[in-house]
Amino acid sequence: MSAPLLRITTEDILPASADCVVIGAGIVGVSAAYWLARAGKSVVLLEKGVIGGEQSSRNWGWCRQQNRDARELPLSTKSLALWEEMTADLGEDLGFRRCGLLYLSNSETEIEGWADWGRFARGEGVDTRMLDGKEATERGVATGQSWRGGVWSPSDGIADPSRAAPLIAKGVLKHGSRVVQNCAARGLELSAGAVSGVITERGVIATTQVVMAGGAWASSFLRQLGVEFPQAAVRSSILSVKPGAEGLPPALHTASVSVTRRGDGGHTLAISGRGHLDPTPGALFGAKHFLPMFAKRWRALRPGGLQAWNAGFESRSRWSMDRQ
């Protein structure tokens, strides 16, 4: 079953040229195109299916600083301010709320790890607060059980996965650039070794700047250019709950489930600790990068199947033809 998704209408006319072409209209692609357009650049945002139709409408929707790697924390903090700025500029409800983020646990090791992170993060200006057993149980009353402890980050928040990418794409249009759906990018044209155009299934767009934001498809696209871009494909189960469920918090994470309230009043439930790691050529090529990261989370990952490979994520021939 498809994830909840706001559909927007865009023109089918392919511009002859642009300052920049952004390939892929998930949350990364629409955001890149939006800020470029807002800066006065002529942008074409290309999407082989529909805006936000893949991973960007199938995620928890968290906009968080909590438990971020130290190297990405400054970007995470900045991103929260940018979410607020985009919301004000667009005049649309992206579902962004600083509702706070709650982690609960009965593992002393996990709680100690959160405390260590908190001591570092508070030095970086992040509002993160440890909870004792009584406080954690009170805040986690929706779970119906007691907890040894937790961590509460009141300045973190959520955005609505069903609305964010499509509405930011409308912001690209607002600032004078173009969005083209159901049009796959198939390759790049080069002149004297430099990018001179993007080849699409409807024609060529002349440009000297390209942003690749194709998500799981990026590796396949880049391989034809001789660029190895290893990716790891991890699948986990997410359930969409319709509006009307009572007692569920805005954003909650435990060892068994993660909860996010969507802007439509429904909830997204993710089964924690159930990720399946699919073996792909790209993942094997990048094993030296991925394995140290996965070693820290081995309990949350299980051996997967060939779904990612069969879907064409690692194929030279299918990446431009599959549609959402």
Rank of each mutant, 00 (worst) to 15 (best):
F290G: 04
M130I: 15
A136R: 00
R129H: 02
R202F: 05
L45K: 05
Y34W: 05
A25Y: 03
H267D: 10
I51Q: 04
I199Q: 03
L90E: 04
G149E: 08
H175E: 08
S153E: 12
R261F: 09
V44H: 03
V257Y: 09
R7A: 15
L82C: 10
A136E: 00
G312L: 14
L277M: 10
I27Y: 00
A287D: 00
W319G: 07
R318S: 14
V172T: 02
L284G: 10
G49V: 11
L306R: 03
R318P: 08
V21T: 09
T137P: 02
A216F: 03
A251C: 12
S17C: 11
R186Y: 11
D160S: 04
W117N: 08
S2M: 14
C99P: 06
S57R: 12
S42H: 04
V210N: 01
E92S: 13
P243K: 06
E246T: 14
G91L: 05
E201K: 04
A32I: 08
S320I: 06
A255I: 12
L301Y: 05
S196Q: 00
T77Q: 13
S177R: 00
S153N: 10
D278Q: 03
Q324P: 11
S17H: 13
L104N: 01
F285A: 15
D69L: 15
S105V: 09
C183I: 07
A16C: 11
E92D: 12
T87D: 06
V195K: 10
V257K: 06
V210F: 00
G53F: 01
A308Q: 00
P161F: 10
S220P: 00
L277A: 08
A16H: 12
E85T: 12
A308T: 02
W319F: 13
G193I: 05
G266E: 06
R299K: 14
R139V: 02
D19I: 04
H267S: 13
A255H: 12
L101V: 13
V126K: 00
S57N: 12
S56P: 09
V126G: 01
A233M: 13
K41P: 05
T143F: 01
R139I: 01
R38K: 08
W60I: 14
G61I: 01
A159S: 11
R163K: 15
I13M: 12
E85L: 11
T10E: 10
G144L: 06
D160I: 09
T200F: 01
R58G: 06
A255K: 13
I51C: 06
A121S: 07
T109R: 11
T254S: 11
R186Q: 15
W298F: 15
S31D: 03
R302I: 05
R38I: 04
A283Q: 12
S237C: 12
V141L: 14
A216P: 01
G125Q: 08
N182G: 13
A295V: 01
W117V: 09
S76W: 14
W217C: 03
G144Q: 07
E189D: 09
E189A: 09
M321A: 13
G26E: 04
W152R: 01
D160N: 04
L104D: 02
G312E: 13
S196V: 03
E85P: 05
W114P: 02
F285L: 14
S17P: 07
S315L: 10
E84S: 10
T280R: 01
T77C: 12
A164Q: 07
Q324A: 15
R297M: 14
V198D: 00
G61L: 04
